[in-house]
């Protein structure tokens, strides 16, 4: 990776001086051309240091780990992100850099997402990722659903609340690796920075800033995903949300968003058509007669226990078990816990 003189100086300022973001911005503004930093432009606390040497060392360490750094000067710094009030000065990335130029769409969900929303999110992420790059976090629940779907469909960017070396939650280390291989990891933090409380809040602005729109799979009343949605609204991006029934705690935030004008979304087409990708032949799910019968009974009830369905259909419980398992594999139904199922 080649960095221009200006980029290298810029990265030295942001990564090696330990100055906070606001000071970096004011230094950059005063210096006009970042390259001036290497020519001895005064930076507090760095009077006698080998600036160029430090910068080279830092860039070499990035190179060694296979990371790249993106500054506001870079050609491929995403245009959408540049337009938000407080774009990150530097983004560190690992994986497929070319995804930065693609059109992006953000899918997020709370960690405690209901099984139905996870299944739906997976399916929608898969379809959307065939046309747009899916942007999401790395958390359990909704984020993981989006990742699983997008990994199957194609393009994916994950934005981390910590440095690229770290993984939060730690249990998703292998997932992180898969994303790095198949997609792109982004972070505004130095590679060895850990996650802080504030970082999640800040990360959500990047999620919203990168994307043309945000789909919220699930959100409680005080869910952090609502921050992503409200940032998106501030930046003038589209907000989509799955609808929830009354009294479903994990969906109260989604319903609130819809009340405020978010698009009510039940399938990927609702989103894709808005971005000009609709109209293509929807592959009909291949269902046998019995499967169709069980599915229609399930849709009628919304959510039902195996035994309830068996009684309504006058079938044996284990026969219904087998058919629901088939529907689950085909992605038409989801287990919501305690042997209860819901249509997706």
């Amino acid at each position: 990776m080649r960095y221009s003189e200006a980029e290298a100086a810029y990265l030295w300022l942001c990564a090696c001086t330990g100055l906070d973001e606001r000071s970096c911005v004011s230094v950059l503004r005063e210096a006009h051309d970042p390259a001036a930093l290497f020519a001895g432009f005064p930076v507090p606390g760095t009077e006698k240091r080998d600036r160029r040497g430090e910068a080279e060392k830092f860039l070499a360490s990035l190179e060694k780990k296979g990371y790249f750094a993106l500054t506001l000067l870079s050609d491929d710094y995403p245009e959408n992100l540049k337009n938000i009030p407080d774009p990150p000065l530097v983004l560190y990335g690992a994986g497929r850099r070319e995804l930065l130029k693609s059109r992006k769409f953000c899918i997020v969900g709370s960690r405690r997402a209901p099984a139905g929303a996870i299944a739906a999110g997976k399916r929608m992420a898969e379809e959307i990722s065939r046309h747009l790059t899916v942007v999401t976090g790395l958390a359990e629940g909704g984020d993981s659903a989006a990742i699983a779907g997008a990994l199957a469909g194609g393009n994916l960017i994950c934005v981390l609340p910590c440095g690229l070396d770290k993984c939060y939650p730690a249990a998703h280390a292998s997932l992180k690796e898969r994303v790095q291989k198949a997609g792109l990891l982004l972070s505004e933090y130095l590679p060895d920075d850990g996650a802080t409380k504030y970082a999640f809040y800040a990360r959500n602005r990047i999620l919203a800033g990168l994307s043309e729109g945000v789909l919220v799979l699930s959100a409680g009343k005080k869910s952090g995903t609502l921050i992503t949605a409200s940032r998106a609204a501030e930046y003038g991006r589209d907000v989509f949300a799955l609808p929830y029934g009354l009294g479903v705690e994990q969906g109260e935030g989604c319903n609130e968003l819809i009340k405020k004008g978010a698009f009510l979304t039940t399938e990927a087409e609702d989103i894709l058509s808005l971005y000009g990708f609709g109209g293509e032949a929807h592959t009909e799910m291949q269902l046998t007669g019995e499967e169709a019968r069980v599915l229609s009974a399930l849709k009628e009830k919304g959510e039902a226990h195996l035994a309830e369905l068996a009684e309504a259909l006058e079938m044996r419980v284990y026969e219904v078990t087998a058919i629901l398992s088939a529907l689950e594999i085909k992605g038409a139904a989801a287990k919501v816990g305690g042997n209860r199922f819901a249509a997706v």
């Binding site: 078990t321 087998a322 058919i323 629901l324 398992s325 088939a326 689950e328 594999i329």
Partner: peptide, 15 residues
Amino acid sequence: PKHVFEAVSYRLFDK
């Protein structure tokens, strides 16, 4: 197939 489907449904933890 129906036997396989039913068997799959008993792998709770894999899912």
